[in-house]
Design a protein around this nucleic acid. Sequence first.
DNA 1: TCGATCGTTCAGTATTGACTGAACGATCTG
DNA 2: CAGATCGTTCAGTCAATACTGAACGATCGA
Lengths: 161, 161
Amino acid sequence: MQDIVQQFVERMGLMMEADGLPRSAGRIFGFLLLAEHPFSLDELADELQVSKASVSTNARLLEQLGILERISSPGDRRDFYRMRQDAWERVMEVGRRRWEAMRVVLSENAESLPDEMQDAKHRLREAAEFHGFLLGEAGTMIERWRAHKRAALAASDAAAD
Amino acid sequence: MQDIVQQFVERMGLMMEADGLPRSAGRIFGFLLLAEHPFSLDELADELQVSKASVSTNARLLEQLGILERISSPGDRRDFYRMRQDAWERVMEVGRRRWEAMRVVLSENAESLPDEMQDAKHRLREAAEFHGFLLGEAGTMIERWRAHKRAALAASDAAAD
DNA sequence: TCGATCGTTCAGTATTGACTGAACGATCTG
DNA sequence: CAGATCGTTCAGTCAATACTGAACGATCGA
């Protein structure tokens, strides 16, 4: 693996770890972000110097988070992983589900509080309202991002030529 | 502690744990979300059945995340913690800082990649662009939230009377 | 059907992370 | 200044988590 790739992979491992995910998952993410083609489990295990079992678990985690996708070639029983083209939209979608779960909990508890806890009820309502607000904003944001992406990246790539 | 409070506190502990934070921090958060008045370290340790050392560490963590604030009364050497009134705006601000850090890393690496890695460079540029986009959106979102909050909560409280 | 090669799962292990109790410095009171 | 009471820090302990190697079922070609 090239030195600059290795360095970037480690960096992503640390940043994902700061977000509460396994460092290995971050390394897989970093590696595939730079990969020129899809990689199999064994190839990833070899490149990242970890066991196939670890790659299997963490790659599946990233797949569930909407970051990776698994592709298969005819005549090849192996699965190959690569970044999803719409990875970032998917990440935002996963975030929305978490916010929705939080909103539900906050909202239900706000209404079930006894009447003498007015302050608490008010704070819970505000918290629930905030998460509902986030939910809505994130929804429209995905569409704005699609438009933004086309414009921004066209300009960026043109500038590089 | 009332049963309904205890249940909510545990719930918040689990949800924060799913977000990668210590469960104890989540419990403090949940408890103060329902608290009718600020609490000292010793009171929190007593209520949540954990050591004062643990409360000290986790409360400070929540303070850094912009969720809690520490207040002091004249003639009392103790510090008291309570939810910040603008906790959610602060949380969003902290998120923005993380996205900015990520954007910088992605952007720098995109430009330092060798020319033969065109695909990787394109993906990194897109990833950096996404985080920059998030950054901008979150900025304007804070202002929209302030307006939204006033309208929504006024209606909500009125309906409850 | 046999052997080879996938991906996944699982028990065991190592490492990381959280919590505790004690010690400490700082700050106030008597 | 002595004693008390804060909050923080730190070494030690305990629990949770991630990783590994081996075993397993599934799938395919010979």
